[in-house]
Design a protein around this nucleic acid. Sequence first.
DNA 1: GGGCTCGCTTGAAACGGTTCAACCATGCTA
DNA 2: TAGCATGGTTGAACCGTTTCAAGCGAGCCC
Lengths: 353, 353
Amino acid sequence: MAMRARAEFPDRRPTIRHVAARAGVSVGTVSNVLNGDTPVSDARRTAVLDAIAALGFQPNSVAQSLRRRHSRVVGLMATGAASAYFAALLESFEDIAARQGYEVMQVLSRGDPELETRRVGALLARQVDGLIMVPTQTPERSFDLIAAAGVPAVMIDRAYPDPRFDYVTMDNDAAMRAAVAALAAEGHRRLLYVVRWPGLVTTRARIAAFHDAAALRGLGAGMLARDPADDAFAAQLACLLQGPERPDAIIASNSDLALPMLAALQALGVGVGRDIGVLVFDEPIWAGVMTPPLAVVRHPVAAIARSAWEILIDRMEHGGDERRRIVHAAEIVMRGSARRRRSDTGGEAKTAT
Amino acid sequence: MAMRARAEFPDRRPTIRHVAARAGVSVGTVSNVLNGDTPVSDARRTAVLDAIAALGFQPNSVAQSLRRRHSRVVGLMATGAASAYFAALLESFEDIAARQGYEVMQVLSRGDPELETRRVGALLARQVDGLIMVPTQTPERSFDLIAAAGVPAVMIDRAYPDPRFDYVTMDNDAAMRAAVAALAAEGHRRLLYVVRWPGLVTTRARIAAFHDAAALRGLGAGMLARDPADDAFAAQLACLLQGPERPDAIIASNSDLALPMLAALQALGVGVGRDIGVLVFDEPIWAGVMTPPLAVVRHPVAAIARSAWEILIDRMEHGGDERRRIVHAAEIVMRGSARRRRSDTGGEAKTAT
DNA sequence: GGGCTCGCTTGAAACGGTTCAACCATGCTA
DNA sequence: TAGCATGGTTGAACCGTTTCAAGCGAGCCC
């Protein structure tokens, strides 16, 4: 049958006109049976349906998009796909979108604002109906583009204060305070916060909360901001760990950072959960299999994806106009890596922030 | 300026006709300066360019696609995004595609053939120029759809013998033989192969190679095929490990399986790299931070992505016609988890298959 | 029987670009 | 001076849909 169609319309897929011709009706009628709004007599309807089946006709969505003036494609702009966090995000979106008849087009900025505006431009040119985006550190030009095109957009994860868009993020301030509290409860007195991108708004909020919470409790608070891929990283970490103000617990700002950091610790012969406590932001899938298991502050990624989609679909389909700002709570999962002594490796304790 | 454009064309982005009017030329001329094929006088060219800048005009790609009869969008059909393997794949593709002016539209089948054909249909309706796909176990209907549409496609990872498409995969047979050899060299005598999806072509190749290689060396070869999310999994694993033919090394068929398996082992109190050797297919990012570090057979994902793209672009742009089949070698990375005795946790040995 | 409504059908005009035949000055050649 | 190639320019047709005004026949009411 497929062969049949190819033979009849060499090198071209059948169009609505072929269907109309074969069914002996006008193109308008075919469109009507396809879209089911205007009534069509049963005789013609079945004739059309038969022709469609015989030809293997499938409507061309790009023509539809052009005429209908919307594409049912949403753009997803992330900074990278490899991290477990973004992969989970993409997966959530693809699922929800597919169920509602949308396609998702994913593009990556790799954290580069210039690349970001280029890729956003491409998405806009493709007439996406909406945009979900994890902004880079300086997203102004991209924001202007989006606003000029008048495309609904919701920003996730990093909330820059821009009144033109919706935001859904996690509560970084509360999460960090809870993290500090949990560590303090465990008996840790001197904390070190290791961060990869100190300039990110999310990170800035965490840094502020970290120092504030530590001060409130009279804990020591140090910080190391450095690319772990950098050679100097391990050296600086070693230096801090052997210095006079030796920290007894480390908070890592995300799971991508955690991996090289743990490697460095291992190379230094510093035992996690024995010589030092470790708590990391995000929940990498491998957190549970480590020995000792890794304590984490669990990023509410599924909830964020769901809220972002809800807001976007509302704006796309009903054109809501007030801007929303949603904040989800993270959850501290205490495990062996953050304990004061090596004692246990087992059970976990949870605390909602 | 953005505001300006919005005001002049309320609720509508500027089109090529607006540009033409403003520059005092015909639409054909605007198109010519945009596409640079036909010569345009300098005076008009700058007039057009000025108008474009003033209006913030950007060509509508869906109109372009309709007229040009190609979209410069490629579809990427995977079975899931969460696994490190697919995330890496997506990231590689997005990078290469963006550089060459393509957009990628990703859809997920979740391993379900029915969902796969629906999603492939959506991609085809959107007039993708090409398709890169990790097929499900029974992809026939999807294959027919793709072939009928006449869209170039390259299948990766799982090579079903279908002459209509190109394939790029890893050499599962050689990889498994090398794995068995490496384990044997380490002194292991009874091997257990734990697999999640025994029906996959890739897995079938591995299973055959596993039994064959073990037999050739006179090693014991057992197999456990079971969903690790299933309760029975841990019980069956325990049973095998305590039985009379107690294996002294396990090969896990992929990293998603490895995680729950390691957890089960831990719960059983069986020490990895001490009581039992473990080697896993794929290289999860966390392989290095485990104690002991995880021995893996490294999946050549970047190489696969690159080859697949090369083939696809060739077919899309030059319409090559002979089908190709590319096989990349995996690499065994020996580490502590697969050692016979707990001895070392450090250095790694590599063996190309 | 005339006028209406009602259900169905049609054909043409968009949508926003690209492409191409035709045209128009020039300047060059014979 | 006619003939002709050449560089620029234009306008209309086209891509494959949807949408909508207009038409049409049948049935109904007065």
